[in-house]
Design a protein around this nucleic acid. Structure first.
Lengths: 351, 351
DNA sequence: TCAAGTCTTGAGAACGCTCTCAAGATGAGT
DNA sequence: ACTCATCTTGAGAGCGTTCTCAAGACTTGA
């Protein structure tokens, strides 16, 4: 039955309103210098016909593409996904992005790119050539990948680097990792803890170093040593298990652990349980990320909330607002917050 | 420094290879009737220049847009998101979609559309006009929304309806909800349970009815009555709390609950804990969805795994393969599986 | 009242690709 | 050889926008 409805183009509108294509285009794009009376007439036609400009045609005509491309790490995303581990990053990123994009008439697309392969350039290059995005958002660990940043700079595509404060092309944004780790450690110290360990993330993520810095600084503030209290994981559950065991083996007097991901914190919780340590009575735990899973563990975990969506949203706004000139040295920082739940308590004997 | 590199177009390739645009186009699209020798030459040029066709131009030239649009419920997504409740649906959907799309040279975009508003038509219409997708994937509760399916049918855009087995335009796909609920209930019966309650989802989701059907059928198979054992929630945590309380109040002899979402199951777990009921000793629990959160609760929940990514992936493949002719009456069913964890045990006294 | 703007409008090219159609090259059948 | 069918290649139009540029209408100031 369905009559195939002819596409409503700018031409239909022009004819309907009895003006030229160009005038309609001006009205659509809010261009200046259109007589109010004509503008209204055109608007009415647009409304009546339900005209919406074709993204593809807009792109073709040489101006903007209205597309923002977000790059995520393929390997990690796929691993998380296939094991149903939850990929909160993608999730938050996508939502923060979609919402902000649509607010400005843009669209967001997600591309999975493999950091480890030497195909990075090819893969990303292909995506860029195909989509010709007006902006690109890089997430860790791509944010400081030279190949990528140089590729983008060479093609003159504005981009944002999330989780990077290094100088260089692009707009750097961070989530205050140093401050957040400092906050977490300080809170534990305030609760009377003195032996506070850190399970850090892998070194290719700069945020790993920042978090270590923040933790060290907090300990330093109070003259507390940090030797032997650092372990490195890969954000995954198993690595958290290993790290927690090593930490507990090496430091029988440990009373608190800060883990650089929810998964690793959950692993530490499990290790503690196995060893008959009660959380938070015997051991306090603070995790990073605050993904949904930490709300339903027993006990629910105190966590640093990474404002991913907010950060991506800011990145999108910057990209759209600045257009061409996206380079910057001033780092945009969206602060993380500490969400206290039930995995933290005064240090044993300090209640 | 960055020299602005001129875009590599099909023309550059044609010149480089000394052939016409048309020939390059044929090679790129795997068209037939190109002399192998020429084909190789063109391929070499493409390789050397790093040519990738512009999506926008491809769309413009009247053929395909290579875009698949996935529609999600805005209201629910935003609520989940703002409360950091986890939006596993989006997540799984996106990944299943992205992967399968990119395998076929397509791209996936996600659009949030509000079911409740009368703007559905306008919002979706605008997205379609702007993007001109080659296919659309509808997720519950949009899958059976008349306004939407008619709009798509009228515009002759192929679409898939996930979570719908109703006749009508589009490709229907389900995740075997009836069978899954039957499976869950049967398993509980097998464990000796006789008083098995169900916390269903809201009625605007057909899957809610299917799950109730499956549960009833399993009970019926064994002559077990289901009166007073049904409560309806909205998939959210609070509604789960209410439902579990009502169920437990009304049926002191209850030994098992099947919840239509992880959130509601987690709520039931909490209610049980509050009332001094041990899970699974006193009460067995099975949830639907199997999102990451149920792996870390105490105890980890036995759950029906909804193969969302797989289903979306199938939908994408169908849309791409069928093109125009996407209507179908044969429902594609991707079966859900029961993942046993520690929230299920033999009924009290039946060990 | 006239020159020199400033506004407003439109015509036509351009974007990068695929489609349609036609022409030349090649091969098969007689 | 000669005709007809098939394969291979290319030329040119068209897709829906925006851009550039030019022309006409209207102001303004002397």
């Amino acid at each position: 039955m369905a009559r195939v409805r002819k596409t409503v183009t700018i031409k239909s509108v022009a004819e309907d309103a009895g003006v030229s294509l160009q005038t309609v285009s001006r009205v659509v794009n809010g261009g200046p210098n259109v007589r109010p009376q004509l503008r209204d007439k055109v608007r009415a036609s647009i409304e009546r016909l339900g005209y919406v400009p074709s993204l593809a045609a807009q792109r073709m005509s040489g101006s903007r593409s209205y597309i923002i491309l977000a790059i995520n790490d393929r390997e990690r995303t796929l691993a998380d996904w296939s094991e149903r581990r939850g990929t909160d990053w993608v999730d938050q990123m996508l939502l923060g992005g979609i919402l902000t994009c649509s607010k400005h008439g843009y669209r967001m697309m997600v591309e999975l790119v493999d950091t480890h392969s030497d195909h990075v350039e090819r893969e990303l290059g292909a995506a860029i050539s195909a989509l010709q995005p007006d902006g690109v958002i890089l997430t860790p660990p791509h944010s400081e990948n030279r190949l990528i940043t140089e590729l983008l700079a060479a093609r003159a595509i504005p981009f944002a680097r999330i989780g990077s404060n290094a100088p260089g092309p692009g707009i750097p944004l961070t989530m205050g990792d140093e401050g957040a780790a400092h906050l977490a450690a300080s809170r534990l110290i305030e609760l009377g803890h003195r032996r506070i360990a850190m399970i850090a993330g892998p070194s290719q993520y700069s945020l790993s170093a920042w978090r270590i810095d923040g933790w060290r600084r907090a300990l330093g503030d109070h003259g507390i040593p940090s030797e032997g209290l650092l372990e490195v994981g890969d954000f995954g559950y198993e690595s958290g298990t290993r790290a927690a065991r090593a930490l507990l083996d090496r430091n029988p007097d440990l009373t608190a652990i800060i883990a650089s991901s929810d998964q690793m914190a959950l692993a530490a919780l499990e290790v503690a349980r196995d060893r008959g340590l009660h959380v938070p009575r015997d051991l306090s735990l603070i995790s990073f990320d605050n993904t949904p899973i930490v709300r339903f563990s027993q006990p629910p975990l105190t966590a640093i909330d990474q404002p991913i969506a907010e950060t991506v949203s800011r990145a999108v706004e910057q990209l759209i607002a600045r257009g061409e000139d996206s380079d910057s040295d001033t780092v945009i920082e969206v602060a993380a917050a500490l969400v206290e739940r039930s995995s933290t308590a005064p240090a044993p004997g300090k209640a």
